[in-house]
């Protein structure tokens, strides 16, 4: 059980809370103590819009422990419109093929469950931007 780790990461996982550097203005995700651009400490919290595009992707057929029931699934590098690139699962693809450059938006979904009796871990995934899909 990793209750404390999941609990500590809730803000960034549930709603993409990162940081904005109050020195150089760069947006940072995930949040960290030092700005990766200007190396200044102590950043302001910043909630990302959740909009971005697929930078690259790969489909997982042999899933690691805890994710087997979701296989096959697609993992993508998503470039957020504010700049940072993060790794996340794509979801709700239906019969759509993922593409580089596909507009996506963040949704909060189940990431995994820790067995039948353990906690349910929630976090961000990205789906095809709905306005474009309909």
């Amino acid at each position: 059980m990793e209750l404390s780790r999941h609990w500590r990461l809730q803000d960034q996982r549930y709603r993409l809370v990162g940081e904005v550097c109050d020195t150089c203005g760069v947006k940072i995700f995930p949040p960290r103590d030092i700005c990766p651009e200007c190396s200044k400490p102590a950043q302001e919290l910043y909630t990302f819009s959740g909009r971005g595009e697929v930078y690259s992707f790969s489909t997982v057929y042999n899933a690691p422990a805890g994710y087997e029931e979701y296989a096959p699934y697609t993992v993508a590098l998503v470039k957020l419109e504010e700049g940072p690139v993060l790794t996340a699962q794509l979801t709700d693809l239906g019969d759509q093929e993922p593409e580089i450059g596909m507009p996506v938006e963040m949704v909060t979904r189940k990431l995994r469950t820790e067995g039948d009796q353990g906690m349910i871990v929630y976090g961000y995934k990205f789906r095809p931007a709905l306005a474009a899909a309909v």
Partner: peptide
């Protein structure tokens, strides 16, 4: 979907 429930 597999990753959806009443919370999500």
């Amino acid at each position: 979907g597999l990753d959806e429930d009443v919370a999500t």
